[in-house]
């Protein structure tokens, strides 16, 4: 099996003429956690967003180069971006649940693709309000319902929310919201998970939970995580790429980057000389 999930070649991004990313070439290994580190504005987030064509949303952005995924160049004009994003998912720095119930949040990606909600299976009416009986839901064989349950379990959130699936997701705590976003992302069954500084708005305990979660998820998914927290990269990443001023300076196994990097710049950064 091919060990590379994504192959980026000479990827360049400009905003209104200003070069934010200068010709990055990088192979993202499959079923590993790759961390992208670097100072603010070094281009690591910009690079991450090329992987799911998020820059399409910004009119002033222009991309060039190629990113090969499943044999196709996703930067090509006739790539179906909608479908691409169901295969390469993204979670952002600020957890953003939709103003819907927890269940509906996780089911969102599936509904978008046309999956229909089953009729009242697992859903009971209590005092006129729709409640969700989690036991029925867990036992359900309906595709949408079982996907939702599995995603919440994979995101280590099921036990905490199973009694409250019908309540608004906006009431969850920060750490729970972010795990919800992760559950929402994997419900769509992507191949690659992109995470843009997912823990920077969270407390250390929630951060730890998510890091443990990611370590488990890499069995099923390829994970790329942008982080400005070097310790995090050291803790969980198999591979690390160091970005500086829009360029990829060095990319290697994490241990190598942090202990005996080849470039002086990398060594200076990981030692904390600048940041």
């Amino acid at each position: 099996m091919d060990t590379t999930a994504l192959q980026a070649q000479n990827v360049r991004v400009t905003y209104d003429g200003h070069e934010a990313l200068k010709g990055v070439t990088l192979d993202i290994p499959r079923n590993q956690i790759t961390a992208l580190i670097g100072a603010s504005g070094s281009g690591k987030s910009t690079f991450l967003r090329t992987l799911n064509r998020m820059h399409d949303v910004t009119p002033s952005a222009a991309m060039s180069g190629s990113i090969t995924f499943n044999g196709h160049n996703i930067l090509d004009k006739d790539t179906d971006v909608i479908e691409l994003r169901t295969k390469i998912g993204m979670v952002f720095q600020h957890p953003v649940p939709f103003p819907k119930s927890t269940f509906d949040n996780v089911a969102y990606g599936l509904r978008i693709q046309g999956e229909r909600a089953p009729r009242s299976r697992g859903v009971v009416k209590l005092l006129g309000k729709r409640m969700i009986d989690w036991k029925k839901l867990e036992a359900s064989t309906d595709r949408m319902e079982s996907t939702v349950v599995q995603s919440l379990k994979d995101a280590a959130l099921w036990d905490e929310v199973k009694e409250r699936l019908h309540l608004s997701a906006l009431r969850l705590s920060g750490g729970q919201k972010q795990r919800l976003c992760i559950a929402r992302m994997i419900a769509v069954r992507p191949d690659v998970l992109l995470l843009d500084e997912p823990c920077s708005a969270l407390d250390p305990i929630s951060t730890r939970k998510i890091e443990d979660l990611l370590m488990k998820l890499k069995e099923k998914y390829t994970i790329v995580i942008v982080t400005h927290n070097m310790q995090q990269a050291k803790r969980i990443a198999d591979y690390t790429g160091f970005f500086h001023m829009g360029e990829l300076v060095e990319f290697d196994a994490t241990k190598k980057i942090f202990e005996e990097a080849e470039k002086q710049l990398t060594r200076n950064y990981v030692k904390g000389y600048f940041g």
Partner: peptide, 13 residues
């Protein structure tokens, strides 16, 4: 917030 729109698009909407 713009992040809501981004999150939706990132899920393939």
């Amino acid at each position: 917030p713009g992040s809501v729109r981004e999150a939706s698009l990132a899920l393939g909407a």
